[in-house]
C-alpha cells in the first residue's frame, strides 16, 4: 500500500481517526471483563459506524444508526444486562475458562481475517463511473417504496412479530 503524503487529505485523516475509534471500541466490547463497560464500548462502536456512514454520503443511514442502534438497541441491551446480572460486575463478561476454546476461537478468527484480507487485496474493484447525487435519500426512498415495497412491508411485519414474540418470551408462562 503506497503512502503518499502529498495526496493525504482531511477526509483521509477523518477516516483514520474514526476507524481507529471504531476498532478500539469494538475490541473493548470483546475484551472488557465488566459487561457494563462492554455495553458502553458498544455504543461508541455504533457511533463510530454512524460517523463512517456520514462520511460515505449516507446521512440518512447515519441518523438511523444513531437512533436505532446507539439509542434503542443499546438501552435494550443495558436493561437486559441489569435484569440478568447475578455476579459481581467485575467478572460479568469473562472469557471462556477453557483455553482450548479460546485458542480455537482465535485460530478461526485469524484464518477468516487472512481470507478476507486476501480477497480484498486481490480483487480488482470496479469503480462506478456515474457520480451520484449529493444526498442519496431520494434514491433510497424511490427504491424502498417502489421496486422493494414488498420487502419493505415484510420487514414491517417481521418487526411486529418480533415485538410480540419478545413480549411473550420475556413475560414468561403462567405459574401453575
Amino acid at each position: 500500500m503506497m503512502f503518499n503524503l502529498a495526496a493525504f487529505s482531511l477526509y483521509d485523516l477523518a477516516f483514520i481517526i474514526i476507524a481507529g475509534i471504531t476498532v478500539t471500541a469494538a475490541l473493548g466490547v470483546v475484551l472488557f471483563k465488566n459487561i457494563i463497560y462492554s455495553a458502553l464500548s458498544l455504543i461508541l462502536a455504533f457511533l463510530g459506524a454512524a460517523a463512517i456512514y456520514f462520511q460515505l454520503n449516507s446521512s440518512f443511514l447515519g441518523v438511523i444508526q444513531i437512533l436505532v442502534y446507539a439509542g434503542a438497541i443499546s438501552v435494550l441491551i443495558i436493561f437486559a444486562i441489569m435484569l440478568v446480572m447475578n455476579r459481581p460486575a467485575g467478572e460479568s463478561n469473562l472469557s471462556s475458562p477453557r483455553t482450548r476454546e479460546v485458542f480455537t476461537g482465535a485460530t478461526i478468527t485469524a484464518m477468516l481475517f487472512t481470507a478476507l484480507i486476501a480477497v480484498i487485496g486481490f480483487t480488482q474493484w470496479p469503480i462506478g463511473a456515474k457520480p451520484g447525487p449529493d444526498n442519496s435519500l431520494g434514491l433510497l426512498a424511490d427504491l424502498l417504496l417502489g421496486d422493494y415495497v414488498i420487502a419493505f412491508e415484510a420487514a414491517a411485519i417481521l418487526l411486529l412479530v418480533a415485538v410480540v414474540g419478545a413480549i411473550i418470551l420475556a413475560k414468561g408462562g403462567e405459574n401453575k
Partner: peptide
C-alpha cells in the same frame, strides 16, 4: 475496516461466556 470489526465480532461470539455479550 469492515473485516476487522467483523472478525472482532466473530472472536467475541466464539469465546465469550455471557449470552448477552
Amino acid at each position: 475496516l469492515g473485516s476487522i470489526v467483523f472478525c472482532i465480532g466473530v472472536f467475541g461470539v466464539l469465546t465469550r461466556r455471557n449470552a448477552v455479550a
